[in-house]
Amino acid sequence: MITPRFDELIHAPTRLSLVAFLAATGWADFAVLRDSVGLSDSALSKQLTTLEDAGYAEIRKAFVGKRPRTSARLTADGRTAFDRHVLALQEIVAGAAGRWPSPAGHPSSRSAASDGEPAPGGVSP
């Protein structure tokens, strides 16, 4: 069972976008990541290196013909850390919703759960 754990490394805005994208894919091409998350080559390299150093991402370099092709994916540890981080975020939101009546339009009151759907950002089993 996954326990919630807020992860400062993942929560940084750019890395959150990057990790969330990687969490939804297997291997992702460097160019696709760059364009999808909206980063420069150097910024993406830096973020991927940070994730790799933390053991959260794996980077693969291969050649397609003569062209180098770089891909990245989350490691099992990275995926677990992300799932735990999502649970921690959900707890924070749920805790706030429990303390105060949720105003209309607040994300926690946009009850996807009441529609029979998992909450936004919910962890797939």
Binding site: L16, V86, V93, A96, P107
Partner: peptide
């Protein structure tokens, strides 16, 4: 902030 982060995660998915 947590809700924004969850929204971002949903958007990336």
């Amino acid at each position: 902030d947590a809700a924004r982060a969850l929204s971002e995660i949903g958007w990336r998915r």
